[in-house]
Structures are given as C-alpha cells and as structure tokens.
Design a protein around this nucleic acid. Sequence first.
DNA 1: ACCTGTCAACTGGCATGTTAGTTGACAGGT
DNA 2: ACCTGTCAACTAACATGCCAGTTGACAGGT
Lengths: 240, 240
Amino acid sequence: MRMTPVAEPSGMNDLPDLRSSAGSLAQRIHHVLRGAILDLTFPPGAPLRKAELAQRFGVSRAPVTEAIAILAAEGLVVAMPQVTARVAPLSVAALREETFLRSAIEGAVVEQVAQTRTEAQLAQLGRNLRLQELLVEDGDTRGFFEADMEFHALLQGFTGLDRVSDFAAQVSLQLHRARQLLLPEAGRPAETIVEHREVFEGIRRQDAPAAVKAMRFHLGQLVPYLKPLEQTYPRYFREG
Amino acid sequence: MRMTPVAEPSGMNDLPDLRSSAGSLAQRIHHVLRGAILDLTFPPGAPLRKAELAQRFGVSRAPVTEAIAILAAEGLVVAMPQVTARVAPLSVAALREETFLRSAIEGAVVEQVAQTRTEAQLAQLGRNLRLQELLVEDGDTRGFFEADMEFHALLQGFTGLDRVSDFAAQVSLQLHRARQLLLPEAGRPAETIVEHREVFEGIRRQDAPAAVKAMRFHLGQLVPYLKPLEQTYPRYFREG
DNA sequence: ACCTGTCAACTGGCATGTTAGTTGACAGGT
DNA sequence: ACCTGTCAACTAACATGCCAGTTGACAGGT
C-alpha cells in the first residue's frame, strides 16, 4: 500500500487565541493544546516547554503546568519527572487497541440505536449521509472528515446516554491523530460512505445484528492502513 | 429492595503515606487521593481544600493543585473556578452509562478470549473461581470483592491488549464507588459466582456468543440495585 | 577514533506571595 | 418572619523565585 505524505505541520507558531472559550486559564490552555495536538499542529514528539508555552500564551507557568498534567493523564503527552514533556508518539499497538475499544463501544451503540431509532433520527442520519456524498463529490476532504465524525456523534447521541460521546472520543484520541494523516487516501472516502450506508440500512431495517456487523467492519477497515502509515511517518511513531 | 447501610467513612484523617510509590509529588498525591475517593474514605461530596490537603501531606499547594486537576479531568471530583473542589456525587444516570460502556467493552473482551483462550488461561480462571467460592464461604466480603475484580482483570489481560484494563477501569470509576456501598448485600456474592461460572463455561466451550451473553447479563445485574442505593444514601447522590 | 568524566546551561518541580472571587453571617428594611 | 445589601473570612487562581535533576558539549584518557 503506497501513501502520499500530507504537507507536514510547519512548526508551532499558530495557536488559537486564549480569549476564545471560558473557564480558568488552565482549562483554556488545556483545550487549546489538546486541539493543537489532535490536529497535528503539534506533531507527535514535539516538545512542550512550559516556559516557552507560558510566554506564547502570555501567562505564567502555573496554568501551563496544570494543562500539561491533564494532557499527560489523557495519554496525549508523555511526561517524565524533570524531563521536557513531549507530544505522545503514535504506536501501531495503541491504535489497534483503540480500534478494538471503539468497535466495542460503537457496536453497542448501533445495536441499541437500531432497536430504538425514530423516524426523525433516521431522517437526520439520511441527511448527514447525503451531505457526506456531496462533500466527497466536491473533493472537500476536510469537510468530509467532519461529516464523518458527525455521523458517529449522531449515533452516540441517539442512545440518550450523554456521556457516551465523551468516552468514545477519549478512547479514540490516538486514532483521531492517525486519521489526520490518512485523510488524503484517495478512494477511502467513497468506500467509507458505502460502509456508512450499510450501517444506516441495518438501523433503518431495525436489524441490530446487521448494523453491529456493518459498524465493526467499517471501523476495522482502518487497521490495514496502520502499518503503511508507520512506514510513511516513522518519525511520528518513534519514541525519541 | 431493602439495604443495610454500611458503616460510613468516619472522616478523612487516614491517608496513606506519600512515601509509598514513586514519581513526582503530584503523581503520588493524585494516586493517594484517587484511592481514597474510590474506597470512599473521601465520600461523594467531601470538600478537597488545597491548603488543608497540602498541610496534611506536608507539601505545598502546587502539587495538590495538579493532582486535583487530574482528578477533575477523570470525573472523580467536580471543580468550578474559585469554588472548593468536591468529590463527585454519584448519579444513577452516570452509573447506567458506565454499565452500558462496561458491558460493551467486557463483552468484546470475552468474545475474543473465548476464541483464543489457552488451557493455561482456563486453569488460571478456574483457580480464581475456586478462590471466590472459598472467600464467600469464609464470609470475607472484601476479599471476595478483590477476587471478583481479579477475575475481570484476568480476562482483560488475556486479550493481549495491555491498555484495555486501563480503559475498562477508567470507564468504571463511578461503578467502583457504588459497589463499595453494595458490598454487604447478602446473597449477591453467591449469585455473582454463578454468573462468573456461566462466563467461564462459555469461554471453556469456546462458545463466544454464550460467553458474551453471560457477561452482559452479569454486569447488568447491578442495575436493579442502583435506585435503592440512591434511596439509602441520598447524601451521596445529591449535588450539594 | 572511542569511551568517560566533568561542567555549564537549561528545564521542570515545588514553595510561596498576591490578588480576586466566593460564601455565609449579620444588619436593616419591608 | 422574610428578603436584601454589606462585609469579613476564606479559598482558589495565578505569578514568581529557587533549587535540583537532566542534557549535551567538551576535555582528557585509553
């Protein structure tokens, strides 16, 4: 499997402004850094120096310390005492594990939704699918990526369990980063839509086993891309 | 369903010593506080005053601040800006959600383990089950609780995915606390062992669907106890 | 050339001071 | 009696200083 590397992040000079969002400085900084790590503005391995970040945000080191501590607990940065924290490297093993967990959770989600879905929910999913098709036709890869996430978020919301989305996201943090690198894979978006439609069909027919099977298949499709990804971006997978 | 309240935590004057375990002070404090919250030494609603904790541990407020920030991110404490952080209250809704997620994950775990289990693993599970029976006969509720957790941990370990245990634990934090309160429910341990045996049998016969069904049933058995639990310990479920 | 010990610059962990926001008691008005 | 405004004590958030551990360069020995 061959891959075209995407343009890599230039550096880390473009962080969103802190004035956005609310909460304590520490919370806002955590939010901004988290976003920067997830969209690869801060690539795996990038150092997070507290003094430097504090200066960049125009604050002291205290709130930055707190933010980094939380990121470390989430597994997005690796921090050892007395050593500069770094954005956590990707690892094929971790990505496999997340795929396993994500399949488990999202499988259970569609299993339930297939049994409880309303016509209104079905319509909402249908609209999202048509949007996905539109965006692929337009070649809007980034837009498609977001519509894709929206599809899964809709399903999670339909369970009526409002923390499920949070856990699902928490479990997919590394996958989220990996998918950024896989975005330009030509062909995948088209296949993805077919798989999404399969899930949708299962839900429409209230055929829970079929919906579960389709969802698991869909999520498993990422696995074959992982090894080549490691070949293409060895830097992001190394521990150094 | 009637319940006998367990003796409630007397206060919070008995924290483990910090000298145990390694890592930075902040990490160690996080670990100690986490344990105290999970075993209800710090009951839901208990205030976590930074200066007070700092003094108790014989450190400054900085590492305590970091530890509490992480606990807040984990959902074990609720923290609002400028307001004293408190141990997160229990909530029936949250416990239901965790049951859903835990069933999803542990269901997927036994599904895989049923297909891949070795004789050695089977023997290990068998030993654990006999230990559970012994502890119930002896009326060692606490010991049984730990053997129960060990049973689930063994299964998670058998997947060969070493982060699965962590996620499963992370997803079950509130449930862990609730189970502390349910420990003295007479009769449950005996039933629990029957349910565990059912799971074990599915795995032994390599009958994945049966093992999954048994595990889901087992985990779902907690749900009927939640409402009465809320009646018995309203203080622990209130937001105040 | 390689390995090793030393040292200086750097960086993070922790302590502490300062400030601003919150809370609860109390007084005064209705 | 109840509601409301005021105020003092408390507490968390953040800034900053200091010290100890780490790193990488360099010198000297093999």
